[in-house]
């Protein structure tokens, strides 16, 4: 079945110049491997479409069951250059959690 990533993870995002970073953290340790398998750099790039002009990089933090994404050229130039309302990419974390991924139905059974 399909679920939104928000069912499996929480997140925070921020900026470094024109690059946004999004860290997503599994809500339960058992969700980490699913997130790691499904939320690839390619999928994230596709998810954001024209919002991210550059490449997407992914880094793993298995110790805290988290993935960190760098979205390059995603903030309209960043800093004071940008005309975007969300100049610092603070809300991009929630936008990523809209992503739908395929999970096994047994996952949510206690």
């Amino acid at each position: 079945m399909k679920v939104k990533l928000i069912e499996l993870a929480h997140a925070r995002s921020g900026d470094k110049g024109d690059t946004a970073n999004v860290g997503i953290i599994a809500l339960k340790p058992e969700y980490y491997s699913i997130i790691k398998k499904h939320v690839t750099a390619d999928k994230v790039k596709k998810h954001f479409g024209n919002m991210v002009k550059g490449k997407v990089e992914r880094f793993e933090l298995p110790n805290i069951c988290a993935l960190n994404f760098l979205l390059h050229n995603a903030l309209g130039g960043g800093g004071t250059l940008t005309l975007k309302h969300d100049a610092q990419g603070k809300t991009i974390s929630a936008a990523l959690l809209r992503m739908e991924i395929e999970v096994d139905e047994t996952l949510f059974r206690e």
């Binding site: 470094k16 970073n21 997503i24 793993e60 805290i64 988290a66």
Partner: peptide, 28 residues
């Protein structure tokens, strides 16, 4: 955890003038 990933680049190489910190070994 949310603060650890905030404005993070490569978590294995958090570069500062004093040391390069690795965020991938941390245990909470």
């Amino acid at each position: 955890k949310e603060q650890l990933v905030y404005e993070l680049g490569d978590p294995r190489e958090y570069i500062t003038p004093d040391v390069v910190a690795d965020f991938t070994t941390i245990e909470l």
